[in-house]
Amino acid sequence: MPDSPAPTRTRPADAALNTGLGRLLLFVYGVFALSASARALVQIATHFSEARLAYLLSAVAGLVYISATVGLAVGGERGRLIALVSCSIELLGVLIVGTLSVADAVAFPDDTVWSHYGSGYGYVPLVLPFIGLWWIWRHRPQS
C-alpha cells in the first residue's frame, strides 16, 4: 500500500467535543477510568482495613475518571458540562491528594492514582486535567 500524499482531512475548529484531540483524550481518560477503578476495587476487596482513606480516594478517583470519560463521549452541551465538572474535581483531587501524600505520608500508607501528583503513572494524572480543561474551554459554546 503506497503512502499517497493525500491531504490530511482536518476537522473544523468548531467540531464536536469528542473528535480530534478530544478522541485521544477520550481514550486516555478511558484507560485511567479502568485502571483507577480496577485498582480501587482490588484494594477495597482484598485489604480495605489497611488504608481506608487511600482506598476510598482511589475509588473516588476512579469515579471521576469514569464520569469525565462519559462526558467526553456524550459530547454536546451536557457532555461538556459533565466533563468540565469532572476535570475540575480531578485537578483539585490530584493537587490536594498529591500535596497531602507528600506532607502527611502516615495517612497515605498505600498509593492511589493521585499520590505524589501521579508519579506512579508518569505524572499523567497531573497533566491530564490541564489538557482536558483547555480542550473543554476551547469548545465553549459560541454566543
Binding site: 490530511t8 482531512r9 482536518t10 476537522r11 473528535t19 480530534g20 484531540l21 478522541r23 485521544l24 477520550l26 481514550f27 486516555v28 478511558g30 479502568l34 485502571s35 480496577a38
Partner: peptide
C-alpha cells in the same frame, strides 16, 4: 486490559482520520 488495548486503539483511530488518529495509536 492488555489484550483489549490494541484493538480499542485501532477502533478509535479508524473513527479519527486525522493526525489525532495516529496519536491514539502512538499512545
Amino acid at each position: 486490559t492488555t489484550i483489549a488495548f490494541g484493538p480499542t486503539a485501532i477502533y478509535l483511530a479508524r473513527m479519527e482520520p486525522t493526525r489525532w488518529g495516529n496519536l491514539i495509536l502512538g499512545v
